[in-house]
Amino acid sequence: MLSTAIENPEARPPSGPVTVNAGSTAEGETTGFEPKMSARGVNFYYGPKRALKDISLDLPPRMVTAIIGPSGCGKSTFIRLLNRMNDLVPDARLEGEILLDGFDINRPACDAADLRKRVGMVFQKPNPFPKTIFENVAYGPEVNGLRDRLALEERVENSLRRAALWDEVKDRLRESALGLSGGQQQRLCIARCLAVEPEVLLFDEPCASLDPISTAKIEELILDLRRQYTIAIVTHNMQQAARVSDRTAFFLMGEIIEVGPTGRIFKAPRDRRTEDYITGRFG
């Protein structure tokens, strides 16, 4: 892979890429990679309320990082910082840095729309547009300037295939996306996201509103995608985190309590609170 400095020669921030802690977590467990994204000393405030406290977390490339924790602990807040969705929240304030390939995504030169093309997001509730299936997937490439009809059709087909939805919808591309089942809608949202060709995928409880069969399909899909993309998934389903993720971070009341390889976190949590949470003693 090309180094960041070559990709963004003009975008080098005054401090340069932050590499001091690259490849290691707050606990010092190395991942062996320079992180694709990382948060450094992040505090986030909704008005006076501090929702995130001194969060430092790396997303290693081409791995799935699960974020678990009881509801209200700041999981969504955190993941939405990674593609600057919280820019839309009035009176919110961020301290600290969030880096993509070593560059601060909140630096003035970084355009939020451009960032979101590289860092896609799938939401808790499937949210297809009230348009046709084709238009839904074509929307992202279109707003990003892809006009050529054939290329667009190809992009739509590829994205639907990668989201394991093509066979189910190939004969009804011109029908409303709202006619799909909830699970299909969520896979459509994933396809729509893939169509923009992002590098990072963020999932915020993507299965929260789905039945077990649809959930299994989404999990399978995430396992399929994980070697091509850097993925972060918020879930409050511990089995899901165990099944799909390489690394797990446990959030509690806006803080990271523990982060490490998923197997280790579930088998041998080091913090009492992590253990209490994964054994179902609270939350």
Binding site: M85, A113, N127, F129, P130, Y139, G140, V143, C193, V196
Partner: peptide
């Protein structure tokens, strides 16, 4: 028009104007 349409559009890299013209107004 649900907020979620707006969020979905922004998350795909659309700006405010594109979101208004291509998503909100048609919806």
């Amino acid at each position: 028009v649900p907020r979620s349409f707006r969020e979905a559009s922004f998350a795909l890299g659309a700006n405010r104007w594109e979101t208004l013209v291509k998503v909100i107004v048609p919806a």
